[in-house]
Amino acid sequence: MNSLTHVHNGEDVGVPNQKLAMWLFLSSEVVFFAVLISIYLFYKSAFHSLQITPSDIFDIPFTSVSSFILLMSSLTMVLSQNHYEREDISKTRIWIYTTGFLGLLFISGQIYEYTIFINEGLTISSSIFGTAFYFVTGFHGLHVFIGIMLLFVTGMQIHIEDTNSKFGLSLDSLALYWHCVDIVWIVIFTIIYLIP
């Protein structure tokens, strides 16, 4: 019907196409973020001699709250998935939009944090710490932003296509992507913010 798997009658590895593709993409993303964070660690030993050091500028309570928000968005995402499996479309939609909203909240928190940091004199070009910090968190933020767009596109799909199971798998893939963005933040939060 909608994908080749329906007409396919041969050998496979037992994972639906779209899910397999998403996991392959996520394997690539894992390397991507590992390299990203490794660049930060690579330069980290030089940070303590800078004018603005990480421990001067980070506002841990604030970032903890926004980490918590992102963590909870993972919960709402998985709830939306669970409701979708149970064919409860209206709740699915509610949880999808909640997830998107929490993501937006996280992003606005990050933008707020950036403005404060810039006012305090930490910019991309002010020091190697600024460069590495904005590079890593900026790329994560970009991923969150793409995730939010996809969430709203999927919400729109569900509006149009109420009961058809056509988008079932794309919701699963989207959820995988969103959780991936979340776990990356878990690592970034620890390695960049918490470790002295």
Partner: peptide, 27 residues
């Protein structure tokens, strides 16, 4: 926990686990 339960990797095909952990191995 997030990968295993929210992303259901715990219940997932061996192949997918393999792909995912090759990424870690590399880093």
């Amino acid at each position: 926990i997030v990968v295993g339960y929210f992303m259901h990797l715990k219940y997932e095909n061996k192949l997918i686990k393999l792909f995912y952990f090759i990424g870690f191995l590399l880093s």
